[in-house]
Simulated scan of single mutants.
Amino acid sequence: MRLMNMSNHLLLAPIPESPDYLLQRDIKIAVLGSAAVGKTAMVVRFLTKRFIGDYEPNTGNLYSRLMRLEGEHLAVQIQDTPCIQMSAEGARLPDLVVRSLQWADCFLLVYSITDYSSYQALQALRQHLHKAQSDCKAPVIVVGNKGDLLHARQVSAHQGLQLAGELGAVFLEISTSETCEDVSDVFQHLCKEASKQQPPCVLSERRRSAFIPRPKSPNMQDLKRRFKQALSSKAKPGL
């Protein structure tokens, strides 16, 4: 595995799934790539490796999970998008992929080092990604998967680095079938970078109310004194 520009000082720990989080950020990740490059395998290995209990697949291969990263609570949604298809005219993007380009906070672009057409699909996707994210700099990681099949390599590491450079992205080659740690590093890095771009967390309404100070109980002696003063002032004009 060759890792470039990746921080290894990340902490991910499972936390109880409770509605009582004090602070929480929402992180949306879109996983993009062609067929048979290992997108779903990466998502599932990350979810099953790093969390307690079952992950929650929603409609359209949208996975939801709660996690803690460097002391922050994160509500992570991972969209495993439909496969990008290549034709003579270029890449054809399914509707869900187009919507995901607008929806996501960060992107994981996956190709197989044994399939040059899967690399070409990401090259074609680059233009769509730039257009959708023209107003912001969303974190992106380019992953060359199936690094254990070097004998069948069709895409060089240099080509992967070149694509990542054009996207301002991090690049690495991994083998999903060999280890979960590299997969975990990828998602953690995306979550960390995306959380930096979000505004400071606010207290949830449920927990916020617990920190609003209750009014002090009235002093009964003081109330009696004021009541007597009010009666006295009303009685004076009649004298």
Rank of each mutant, 00 (worst) to 15 (best):
L3M: 07
H9D: 14
L10Q: 11
L11R: 13
L11Q: 13
P16D: 13
E17T: 13
S18A: 02
V31I: 10
G33C: 11
S34F: 02
G38I: 04
G38A: 04
M42C: 03
V43E: 01
T48N: 06
R50V: 08
F51M: 03
D54T: 15
Y63A: 03
E72G: 11
A75M: 05
C83L: 12
M86K: 12
S87Q: 07
A91E: 14
R92M: 12
L96S: 09
V98F: 10
S100K: 06
F107Q: 01
L109R: 00
V110P: 07
Y116E: 15
S117E: 14
Q120W: 04
A124S: 15
L125W: 13
Q127Y: 14
K137R: 15
P139M: 15
G144P: 00
R153D: 03
Q154N: 09
G160T: 09
L163P: 00
G165D: 08
L167H: 00
V170R: 01
V170C: 03
T179E: 08
C180E: 09
D182G: 07
V183M: 00
V183L: 02
F187W: 11
H189G: 06
E193F: 02
Q197S: 10
S209V: 08
P213E: 04
F227M: 15
Q229R: 02
L231Q: 12
S232R: 11
G238Q: 15
